[in-house]
Amino acid sequence: MDDRLVTAGLHEPGLAVHVEDLTVSYHSKPVLWDIDFDIPPGVMAAIVGPNGAGKSTLIKSILDLVRPTAGHVTIHGLPYRDQRRKVGYVPQRSSVDWDFPTTALDVVTMGLYGQLGWLRRPGRKDKDRARAALARVGMEDYADRQISQLSGGQQQRVFIARALVQEADVYFLDEPMAGVDATTERTIVKILHGLRDAGKTVIVVHHDLQTVRTYFDWLVMLNVRVIAQGPVAETYTAENLRRAYGGQIALLDSAATLTPVD
């Protein structure tokens, strides 16, 4: 890996995430088409767009979970597969079966499996790191709780703790605020702001347009193509929303004007 750093040459090393020409098709129908976007390091970015815009697919194709038909991605200047260790992922909560026989602490410990290597079992030190990550999301009292007995918001926080324990530089979160109560949402936002303030890059698929301005400082608007991208203050405009969301104009106009400008 060190050799490659020297020989390969970095591509756009100044950017946390660089995506160029990315195209993904399902059954020959484009889900994402000609996606170009850049996210600078140290921002908290939202990816917004209507249903079916390809928000989750975008994250999954960046993380190599969905194979793109064209395009390339770099994380801090190198292809994703060389930067796995620097990337944390929080999938949608509904993507797993929470009846799986395991505890909150065990799920968080899974975040360390990549670093542990083959045949090694997580030891006391690893469990302590997982416990510390649980404490960061306010879940230390639930360490030994069965994951099926946790509320939706608690399950989401366990997932975030699992990504935190990876100590990554770039975090991708898929709808972390979906279906959680207001208290949990505040906790999650606080954790994510903390990560950003520590110089990490946080990229969130977000569904609630009302909170874009208060939570985020960078925005990518998506509808199969990139509609707009940049700092929230310049990008979150009625015109861009209209272009991204099309038919839902009336509703969005009011949303855009109701939200006060900071």
């Binding site: 999954k60 993380l63 190599d64 979970l65 796995r84 990337v87 992922y89 999938p91 993507s95 797993v96 079966d97 799986f100 395991t102 799920v107 899974m110 975040g111 499996y113 990549g114 699992r162």
Partner: peptide, 10 residues
């Protein structure tokens, strides 16, 4: 439990 996440860990 979570095959997608397992892939992101390599």
């Amino acid at each position: 439990f979570d095959p997608s996440y397992a892939r992101t860990l390599g």
